[in-house]
């Protein structure tokens, strides 16, 4: 699966807001012009406000400028209320931005949730086949074969006919991952997909995700509140502040894959980022 060439599936533009408050710590990619680099996702001056009855519009996200390169792996972290999920919904096109633009290579991003959100009336394989069908893949036999291939990819060979409720949480997330891959998007958005899993299962899925990311070459935007998980997985870690969510820091992870969550370098960088996150949170305690 190779990512389709980036196209600007942009939304109505407003002038990109300058973001002097951005802390680059260290600058994510020094000396690189983000305009010429092929990108999977490019957010420019992105903002989102929600109207609350009886009060002014509450900004949830403000002035987000973020580029995820093709084949990149960006982890978004932040405390609750930082609009991480909203940001993914905006990228996935499930919500409209209030300001700014969203560009997604190929015009579509696949989205995975904390719950596997598989349809319980379909078997594991049929869930994947539905995604293929809605993608426009004709031919029942073709869909079946492709679903089998994707299940093998997530090491669930022979699980095609198994009811979803018979699978463990980790297996369900792997089926959900296969379903997301079935969409053949060049961007995979993940909203705390492993938060509800036990530590060992999560560990295994981290390895699986990195393996599939390397195999498929799609870009991943991974939201989590677990800093170590972010450093374990990402090529870049982006910290969002809360209320409104702005980019408050970014780090490139210098450790090559394969990494482990208990590696000293992972733990060291995670401690540094956690410190920054704590500062960010305590700002709200003083206010």
């Amino acid at each position: 699966m190779s990512p389709p060439p980036p196209t600007a599936a942009g939304l109505p533009a407003t002038p990109p807001a300058p973001a002097p408050h951005l802390l680059s710590d260290p600058p994510s990619d020094p000396g690189r012009d983000p305009g010429s680099e092929p990108h999977a996702v490019r957010l420019t001056g992105l903002g989102k406000s929600f109207a609350r009855p009886g009060s002014a519009e509450t900004p949830v996200l403000e002035g987000i400028d973020l580029t995820v390169p093709a084949g990149g792996f960006t982890c978004l972290i932040g405390a609750s209320g930082c609009g991480k999920s909203t940001l993914l919904h905006l990228i996935a096109g499930l919500a409209e931005p209030s300001t700014g633009t969203v560009e997604v290579a190929g015009g579509h991003a696949a989205l995975m949730f904390q719950e596997a959100a598989l349809f319980p009336w379909l078997s594991a394989g049929r869930n994947i086949e539905l995604a293929l069908r809605l993608r426009g893949l004709r031919g029942r036999a073709e869909r079946r074969a492709e679903a089998e291939r994707l299940l093998t990819l997530v090491r669930l060979d022979g699980a095609h006919s198994r009811p979803v409720h018979e699978l463990s949480g980790g297996m369900r997330q792997r089926v959900a991952l296969a379903r997301a891959l079935a969409q053949q998007s060049s961007v995979l958005l993940m909203d705390e997909p492993f938060a509800a899993l036990d530590a060992i299962t999560r560990d295994v899925l981290h390895e699986e995700l990195v393996r599939l990311w390397e195999q498929t070459g799609c870009a991943v935007v991974f939201v989590t509140h677990n800093v170590r998980e972010a450093v374990r997985l990402g090529r870049e870690v982006v910290l969002l502040s809360s209320r409104p969510g702005r980019i408050a820091g970014r780090w490139t992870v210098p450790v090559p894959q394969p990494r482990r969550i208990e590696d000293a370098e992972v733990a060291g960088l995670a401690a540094k980022i956690t410190e920054r996150l704590r500062e960010e949170i305590s700002r709200h305690g003083r206010a």
Binding site: R162, G170, M171, V204, E207
Partner: peptide, 22 residues
């Protein structure tokens, strides 16, 4: 590639956690 031990751990988790059909 995942190390072989991970593959084994994964297979073990799958076997232990999945609910068999009666």
């Amino acid at each position: 590639m995942a190390a072989p031990d991970t593959v084994l751990v994964e297979a073990g988790l799958d076997a232990l956690e999945a609910r068999p059909r009666a």
